[in-house]
Amino acid sequence: MPKKILFALTSHDSLGSTGRRTGFYVPEVAHPAAVFRKAGYALDYVSVRGGAAPQDGINPDDGVVADFLADPATQDALATTVTAKEVDAEEYDAIYFAGGHGTMWDFPEAEDLASLTAAIYERGGTVAAVCHGPAGLVNVKLADGSYLVEGKQVSAFTNEEEAAVGLTDVVPFLLESTLAERGAKITKTGNFAEHAVADQRLVTGQNPASAARVAELVVEQLTTR
């Protein structure tokens, strides 16, 4: 069976009542995608509602992002994402939740995506998430009823970082606080600095600067398992 990674993307495109648009943070997909492809993994994409996933955070000066978005196969994949109901957990070595503020609205209540994540994890796969991507983990429960993040080291966009970008009162909840409520052992560094951690086949990163490192840790885990 070919080695495959599944990227999970938000379908939510409005930033609360600010009038601003949001979506998945493209660098948090493009940079890990480059790492995964170099390691020989094929990539697929799932989103909460399927179809075209809204994009955010595109920096025209980021060559990795530019190359990623210029690829016709990638363009087609991002425009035609499937839903979790259409995905077979058996096909994937890992699932990676990309961030972007949109995730805060639709990831936590995406029950099919949570079930798919638990299935990938419980068959021995790796679960990864970066920045606001861990919003997709807050309600993932394993077969024994425990939360996936319970008792594990977890890194995510911090309360301090949310305050620094002025969105503490815009997002529906604070990600760091909610993960802690679920029993996660929060690990973090200074605002917007690279920080990622791997614990029991769960790999998480704090912010966009951590995305490539998360992918590297996933590859390390899959190589040594």
Results as ranks from 00 to 15, higher is better:
Lys3Glu: 12
Lys3Asn: 10
Leu6Val: 02
Leu9His: 00
Ser11Lys: 10
Gly16Gln: 10
Ser17Asp: 15
Ser17Val: 07
Thr22Ala: 10
Thr22Trp: 08
Phe24Asn: 00
Phe24Lys: 03
Val26Leu: 03
Glu28Gly: 03
Val29Ile: 11
Ala30Ser: 12
Ala33Cys: 07
Ala33Trp: 11
Ala34Phe: 06
Ala34Ser: 14
Arg37Asn: 08
Ala39Arg: 03
Tyr41Pro: 08
Ala42Asp: 14
Tyr45Thr: 04
Gln55Ile: 09
Gln55Asn: 02
Asp56Ser: 14
Gly57Arg: 07
Gly57Cys: 03
Ala66Tyr: 02
Leu69Glu: 11
Thr74Met: 13
Thr74Ala: 08
Gln75Ile: 06
Asp76Tyr: 12
Ala79Pro: 11
Ala79His: 09
Val82Ala: 14
Ala84Ser: 11
Lys85Cys: 01
Asp88Asn: 14
Ala89Arg: 08
Ala94Gln: 09
Ile95Asp: 13
Ile95Cys: 04
Ile95Val: 15
Ala98Glu: 12
Gly100Pro: 07
Gly100Gln: 12
His101Ala: 08
Gly102Ala: 09
Thr103Ala: 15
Thr103His: 05
Glu109Ser: 13
Ala110Ser: 13
Ala114Tyr: 09
Leu116Gly: 05
Leu116Pro: 00
Ala118Asp: 01
Ala119Ile: 01
Ile120Pro: 06
Glu122Val: 05
Glu122Pro: 01
Gly124Lys: 06
Gly125Ala: 03
Thr126Ile: 12
Thr126Asp: 04
Thr126Ala: 10
Val127Gly: 04
Val127Glu: 01
Ala128Lys: 03
Ala129Trp: 05
Cys131Trp: 01
Gly133Phe: 05
Pro134Tyr: 07
Val138Pro: 04
Asn139Arg: 14
Asn139Ala: 06
Asn139Cys: 03
Lys141Ser: 11
Ala143Gly: 08
Asp144His: 13
Ser146Lys: 15
Gly151His: 02
Gln153Asp: 15
Ala156Tyr: 07
Thr158Gln: 06
Asn159Arg: 14
Glu161Lys: 01
Glu161Pro: 00
Val165Thr: 15
Pro172Trp: 04
Leu174Val: 08
Leu175Val: 06
Glu176Pro: 01
Thr178Trp: 13
Ala180Tyr: 03
Gly183Ile: 04
Ile186Ser: 09
Thr187Cys: 02
Lys188Tyr: 00
Thr189Ser: 10
Gly190Met: 05
Gly190Asp: 13
Phe192Val: 01
Ala193Gly: 01
His195Met: 05
Val197Trp: 13
Ala198Thr: 08
Leu202His: 01
Thr204Met: 08
Gln206Cys: 01
Pro208Leu: 13
Ser210Glu: 06
Ala212Val: 06
Arg213Gly: 05
Arg213Leu: 14
Leu217Phe: 12
Val219Thr: 10
Leu222Pro: 10
Thr224Arg: 11
